[in-house]
Design a protein around this nucleic acid. Sequence first.
DNA 1: TTGTACGCGTTATCAT
DNA 2: ATGATAACGCGTACAA
Lengths: 330, 330
Amino acid sequence: MSTMRVSQETRERILDAARELGYTPNPVARALRRQRSNVLGFVPRSDRITPYDSPVPFLLTVHLAHACIRHGYHIVEASTESTSRHGEDDLVQFLLGRHVDGVVLDSPDSAQEVARLIDHRLPVVQMIRPQHAIKTPSVMVDAVPGTTEAIEHLVEMGHRHIAFIGTSGQHPVDRLRLEAFEHVLETHGLRRREEWVVLESTYSAANGYAAANRLIETPERPTALFVTGDNLAVGVLQHLYERNIRVPEHLSVISYDDIFAGHLVPPLTSVNQPLNDAADRAIELLAADIETPPGQHEQPQSVVLSTHLVTRASVRRLSMKEQAHIAVAR
Amino acid sequence: MSTMRVSQETRERILDAARELGYTPNPVARALRRQRSNVLGFVPRSDRITPYDSPVPFLLTVHLAHACIRHGYHIVEASTESTSRHGEDDLVQFLLGRHVDGVVLDSPDSAQEVARLIDHRLPVVQMIRPQHAIKTPSVMVDAVPGTTEAIEHLVEMGHRHIAFIGTSGQHPVDRLRLEAFEHVLETHGLRRREEWVVLESTYSAANGYAAANRLIETPERPTALFVTGDNLAVGVLQHLYERNIRVPEHLSVISYDDIFAGHLVPPLTSVNQPLNDAADRAIELLAADIETPPGQHEQPQSVVLSTHLVTRASVRRLSMKEQAHIAVAR
DNA sequence: TTGTACGCGTTATCAT
DNA sequence: ATGATAACGCGTACAA
């Protein structure tokens, strides 16, 4: 756009006139001319995304939608629900048919999936659990600082018998939480007990319930639990409630995600994931990629965000006597 | 479109060729030609809509987004966050600028707000708490059958001392739950006690907490609670937990909404609102309105959906002895 | 029945 | 600098 020096008054008058005449530029015509649909595609992590069973993918979807609005885009979800007609590359067909300007992928299942999109010259951003084999811009959340802070907090509050409830996911991201946990234990000279690490197949309340059950059955009971997902924590709390084990009086609990941790009973201390920022950065990255002329693209950027601990009412400070007692017991 | 008699084989070949050449019709060009943006506007009930503080408006938003995709529309949210620049009719300017084909309003604050949109010939659908003064298509949820079923359930389980926690909203919809409650009490010859009806200003966990506190302080304690919102129930449960009053052993609880009732501790029996259906119907109504040529529109349709009770683990059956004891006590 | 040309509203380009 | 013009891709109307 050229320099366009216009007095403030003139500017006002023009805008007033425009409003009076009811003129507003037509975004559709603009889109046609610019050869841009202003629509982004979104491929969710899994198909059955419900607010309370899969809180992270769900909230990510919501934040992405908001971020899109802020950046002037629309977004269409390419779940297999919407694309289930033909074979596997139906997803690509769906997105191509919608003429999307770019695609956001949440934790794609395979590198192939990503590759197919790139083959069609579609700008792509991967989130949360990227396929590192394919070089694209990506946004991840570093689990280490938050997890470390959480376990350190438990230790500070006098806990030495700390259990871990997580999942046996294959992606590095899933392993990092456990590794951070183990690292803090080591730092404080605490022994990692096999029976106090419970890995379930997936994040779900039912699995949390089962994990809590197994943990409570161990000969010696931990004094604190680190649960790597809010919905796992729901199951844990439901089980403890049935057994009349009170939190934090009998057992302290910290969860990961901090999505509805504050709305549980009792409100849980939790590691907050910045999903809103993550969504925002993803759209920024994608928008930048789309704007970039086909000339030459820079090296794909990888954004890593950090977490932080939110303290609530689910961790109790152990008295000196209790700490001593435990020390003797082991 | 004319009759277009084409053999099955030809059809196949054409589609194959189309795919091979990578041709897909361009939705933007189609939209321009048809003079339709395929975008709907959505005016949420309030501005600060978060998943767990305002579950109903939030989930409605999400379901509306899905319904839009199913019907081939995009949706833009016209929160004051996106429109906050000038005065009050900024909202209309925003929607006009986006060239939306129609608008969904969740519980509009004033009749004026609706009227202004209609003045601009925008098709409008009102949801949940419509301004009846303006005749538009609308979708509501009838609170009576579900509430009635809930209170009947409590009575069947032997409860005769039932309290009500609600809000003092002005809209008929807010009053209906209380009226249905009172009606069932009357049917069973149970007395309505003033101190067992607590009305808070808004639906929030904090208010639920306060309401539970007030209710527990009453000289005679009810044996069951009907709470007219899941987030109110969150506060109620948090308070009861602090007081070590167990649900349902010491006190039975039923909530309204059934959004995260099943994910609370303990899982709550709850009155389910069909928000998904409501969203779907709203978009259907709006789409039909948009398709209707300017010739003549029919009488605006008003859709009323019903609720149903979902039974979980928060209601205890009172024994005969307990019932007798209570009967004597009063 | 089959084909061709024009217009939707914008913006980029070209000529003045 | 300023203004006229063509083209984006589809749908439709009109002509052949």
